[in-house]
Write a protein that binds this DNA or RNA. Structure first.
Lengths: 143, 143
DNA sequence: ATAGGGCTTCCTACCATGGGAAGGTCAAGC
DNA sequence: GCTTGACCTTCCCATGGTAGGAAGCCCTAT
């Protein structure tokens, strides 16, 4: 199987297959006489594995770990589970962050008339934001 | 005010201030005789604006739009609101995507014993994933 | 006047991905 | 056997937002 067929079979672009090869995520593919990479079912399965893991948001280092566990028939499932759970925690953290952003914006949008007038709580928030702009009344500056 | 002071006052790194300058997000700062950039309160406010908008997840193109609306005292708040709402929709979409990933992984984790044994539904999913691997038993392939 | 720190520009890297060019290779049809 | 077109190879470039660093100029305080 050459790279194009492996690409179709795995759903990973030829670009990315070469890249994974280059960074050592998969073992360097064997080559034909004329220097073409050649792939077998096993390697295609690895590519599919990577594709699926990427689609679940795993980082490349995580995938490196997962791949080596996957190759190891003696692995303790504990280790796989630990990686997955850590990743879930990271996802949850990022979700919470974005949720906070979205909620803030929803609130501001809700308060914004959205008509022809220029007054806009959204811009007001961006202006002042978390920093209270300048106190201006310099003598009694709190904090 | 030179770039270092503007950076402290705005919370934007000098690196990023120069970058925003370079890509034209803020107007090129005026220069002293010795080619130092100089900033006034108004420019520092713009930098704060950008920082706050970044922290709400707006992209640079969106911030470009927001900044120009912010500078325009005649803007209709409608336009600001539209940008914010579009961004909220994008955030929600990305949140939903990540939520799906997290839920999938939570389910798989839940099904994984997480002990010394090698059997692992997480790896099994990554192997077969959405693609049913190869049917192998070729005659009766469901779906 | 000298030291130090701030300023300038320019180059590099990150990460995963894709676009494209230049040139070698294979297979099919004549 | 030769042409054609599809495929392969490597190499370079770009993305986006941020950071690190080097070389060299400038300012200020001692």
């Amino acid at each position: 199987m050459n790279i194009g067929q492996a690409s179709k079979a795995s759903g990973v672009s030829t670009k990315m297959i070469r890249y994974y090869d280059e960074i050592g995520l998969v073992r360097p593919a064997s080559r034909t006489e004329s220097n073409y990479r050649e792939f077998d079912e096993r390697e295609v399965n690895e590519l599919r594995f990577i594709r699926r893991a990427r689609s679940l948001g795993f980082s490349m280092p995580e995938i490196t770990q997962l791949l080596s566990l996957w190759r190891d028939r003696e692995r303790p499932s504990r280790e796989v589970k630990a990686i997955a759970e850590k990743h879930v925690r990271e996802l949850d953290a990022r979700i919470a962050e974005m949720q906070t952003m979205a909620d803030t914006l929803r609130h501001l949008s809700h308060c914004c008339a959205g008509d022809d007038r220029p007054d806009c709580p959204i811009l007001a928030d961006l202006t002042g934001g978390s920093q209270p702009a300048e106190p201006k009344a310099a003598h009694g500056r709190r904090r």
